[in-house]
Design a protein around this nucleic acid. Structure first.
Lengths: 211, 211
DNA sequence: TAGGTTGCTGACCGCCCGGTCATCAGCCTG
DNA sequence: CAGGCTGATGACCGGGCGGTCAGCAACCTA
């Protein structure tokens, strides 16, 4: 019916995979894995369902690709920052967190955090991979900064793993919130303000008492 | 096949709804709404699929019931604590958070937090209800404690809404974590330890400098 | 421009699951 | 014990979606 402009039908073998994973990320984050239809993913990428199967073996394979794409480079960058840094431990902490925020938290990649949390139990192997290659390495970055500060006397002695939980929780919650309830409400305050207050509270909380 | 002990088939009109919502909560939290089959919910509640429809009009109605059940009383209890409390602002904060932890965070109800975050965008009206009746009221509790402390000079002046975000984030993350990646890993450290460190950091972070 | 290569398409299949309903069986009343 | 009321059942239906494949059309090469 109607004039139906018909599809241009271009051949672009190189660009397809990343266009498909980008479309899949958006829809998986919005609706969840099970509630997302492959046809919708293909449509958002401007392609038909059959084309999707030229690049990915199954819906689950697409999920794995979505999780892995784009996250790993940001982790590596964080590790490079740690290797280069020479100033105060708190300054190092700030730079690590700033890097995460710039590369992931404040981009569309923040959706991966929500997606992984929502679907971990349905994909235990993917969750295992994500833990080993993303979470563990990011936690190690924060942990190293903390240990450095405690060793130098800049921070007071505290349980490192517990501190890591406390430090990263607000960053994760801001990311997750943005992709869940925030979408159903008329805007919230600037998330950046919360994170600045978080760092301000942390600075005083970690600080060793001056003798 | 086999002897098939057959179902006892008891009539228990009163107990069914809460048994069904309890079973539904477990499965929705584990698999997500879309990936959970009504037949599995019914089976876990020891009942057939048809029986489920005697008590709930649809899968979505069951979802709404799951979200609303059990959470509201805990919020009311928090409000009662605030009305009664007379000590320090930080003590009030601790009691409010302790109440939340005891009534929700450390119980199976913590699954509701993960479920609501995962499904909010698929059920905007439910999300709206949850925000107005649970999140907003709980945030108001924490906010009141903060304002009281800032007014009395116990806390230094800070942006209240941002502080609320920072204070509740670790509690929520611990709850959510327990229902997602933690299930795919061999145990984590005691979450209670993280929350104790969180309160310790907070106490020093909020504290007004002694003149 | 003819012919071949291949990225792309969309109609099709079969299973799965939300929802229905005729029937059954436990309980109560007289 | 008879009769009926009602909670519970499970076979059934229909639509939707993951996955397939025979054919098509864009591009290349000579």
């Amino acid at each position: 019916m109607s004039s139906s402009v018909a599809a241009p039908r271009r051949r672009r073998k190189e660009a397809r995979p990343s266009e498909l994973t980008a479309a899949a990320l958006e829809l998986f984050v919005e609706k969840g894995f099970a509630a997302t239809r492959l046809e919708d993913i293909a449509a958002r990428a401007g392609v038909s369902k059959g084309t999707l199967y030229l690049y990915f073996d199954s819906k689950e394979a697409l999920f794995k690709a979505v999780i892995q794409e784009g996250i790993l480079p940001a982790v590596a960058e964080g590790e490079a920052i740690l290797a280069r840094h020479g100033g105060s431990a708190f300054g190092l902490l700030e730079r690590i967190l700033e890097n995460w925020w710039t590369r992931i938290g404040d981009t569309h990649l923040s959706g991966v955090s929500k997606l992984m949390i929502s679907e971990a139990r349905n994909f235990p192997e993917v969750a295992q991979f994500y833990y080993e290659n993303v979470i563990r390495r990011n936690r190690a970055l924060v942990g190293t900064a903390l240990e450095r500060g405690m060793a130098s006397g800049e921070f007071r002695p505290l349980a490192v793993d517990a501190c890591i939980d406390v430090i990263i929780a607000p960053f994760l919650m801001v990311s997750i919130w943005r992709h869940s309830l925030a979408c159903c409400l008329e805007s919230q305050a600037n998330p950046r303000e919360s994170l600045d207050v978080h760092l301000d509270l942390l600075r005083r909380g970690l600080q060793a008492p001056t003798l």
